[in-house]
């Protein structure tokens, strides 16, 4: 059974950058009350770039894997770039996401957008 892409299974089983920062500059939390998925994204910013990032959360494999992968995607990038980040970038990095579950995959990106506005 391999309906989930390897990258999703990998990040689900071995989440990267999971935990909390001691003194984050930006924080975004996004919750889907219908399914209970939750993602918290914490960023440390230096020279307008992401110097460090952590995520925390619980929920389905897709939302949590997407959050883990997102932390890798945004590391070192400028906040200006991240404000322009498109859904497709995360979805294609995930190897494509099944149509019925796009909402789960995009939950961490919504948390990021909240963090950037905070």
């Amino acid at each position: 059974m391999s309906p989930y892409e390897e990258v999703i299974l990998d990040h689900w089983k071995n989440p990267r950058n999971k935990g909390r920062l001691s003194d984050p500059d930006l924080v975004g939390v996004e919750v889907n009350p219908l399914c209970g998925d939750a993602v918290r994204l914490e960023l440390k910013v230096a020279d307008g770039k992401v110097a460090d990032v952590r995520f925390d959360g619980h929920g389905c494999a897709i939302s949590q894997a997407a959050a883990s992968l997102l932390t890798e995607l945004i590391q070192g990038r400028t906040l200006a770039e991240l404000r322009e980040m498109k859904d497709e970038e995360l979805l294609s990095a995930l190897g494509g996401v099944i149509q019925t579950r796009l909402n789960c995959a995009l939950l961490p990106l919504r948390a990021l957008r909240k963090a950037l506005k905070s």
Binding site: P3, Y4, C35, C60, I62, T100, R101, C104
Partner: peptide
């Protein structure tokens, strides 16, 4: 999560 179970 039940959604993962149902999707698979």
């Amino acid at each position: 999560h039940p959604h993962d179970v149902a999707t698979l």
